[in-house]
């Protein structure tokens, strides 16, 4: 059992990383990555929604008629996203207004639908739950990597704490949209080069260079 757990985790986080390998869910992964704090919040929200909706979909899989399963999945996902939205609004109003539309857009994040459809529909609840967490983690890892590069070069800071000193010339382009495209493009390039898809890449460190 424990080896199976390890398999699920390493597959979701590294080998089949949803963003790098399957190019899913990049809408939101680009929009919130100008600050590390926003990315962390988004990542946590996504882990919550993916894991719990996978769990629910999997628990209901025997009772869901095949032809309306997409609709059921969307409804389950939306319910969890509403929870995230309300909690953020109540306890972290500043964060909530910074992320505003992108919290709602978790619903259309293809990663969640993808996991529900591909994995949760065929596997028992506990494994689906873990699979959701693993994919959410893989996604968050990518978000934080991109945000690290963008915030460091764009603001000279990490998590809002200045690390490059007051004389750092800010790369304004990094916090604007093009910076996001460039960083993600380069990261995907690095992943393709250094972490070959079929090679049994041992669970090494983070995905992607720098």
């Amino acid at each position: 059992m424990s080896s199976k757990v390890k398999d699920i985790i390493s597959l979701g986080v590294i080998k089949d990383n949803p963003v790098f390998r399957q190019i899913l869910g990049i809408c939101s992964s680009l929009a919130v990555t100008n600050m590390m704090l926003n990315s962390l919040a988004m990542g946590l929200g996504l882990i919550f929604v993916t894991s719990l909706s996978s769990l629910t979909v999997s628990a209901l899989r025997k009772y869901t008629p095949g032809h309306i399963r997409m609709m059921v999945q969307v409804l389950i996902i939306s319910a969890y996203v509403i929870i995230v939205d309300i909690v953020l609004k109540a306890y972290f109003p500043a964060l909530s207004s910074a992320l505003e539309p992108y919290v709602g857009l978790i619903i259309t994040n293809c990663i969640i639908m993808g996991r529900c459809e591909v994995y949760a529909q065929k596997n028992p609840p506990l494994a689906s739950f873990l699979d959701g967490i693993a994919n959410g983690l893989g996604y968050s890892l990518v978000l934080l990597t991109i945000a690290f590069a963008r915030e460091l070069l764009g603001f000279g800071s990490v998590f809002g704490i200045n690390v490059l000193g007051p004389n750092w010339v800010r790369w304004v382009i990094m916090i604007m949209p093009p910076g996001a495209f460039f960083v993600l493009g380069l990261l995907i390039w690095a992943t393709n080069l250094y972490l070959p898809a079929n090679g049994a890449g041992k669970a090494s460190s983070a995905g992607g260079g720098r």
Binding site: P178, F181, F182, G185, L186, I188, W189, N192, L193
Partner: peptide, 18 residues
């Protein structure tokens, strides 16, 4: 090598955004 597909597409998009 490795830049084909998604990688180069994102970089092109970046230039377009610029």
């Amino acid at each position: 090598k490795g830049l084909e597909g998604a990688g180069i597409t994102l970089i092109i998009t970046g230039i377009m955004a610029l």
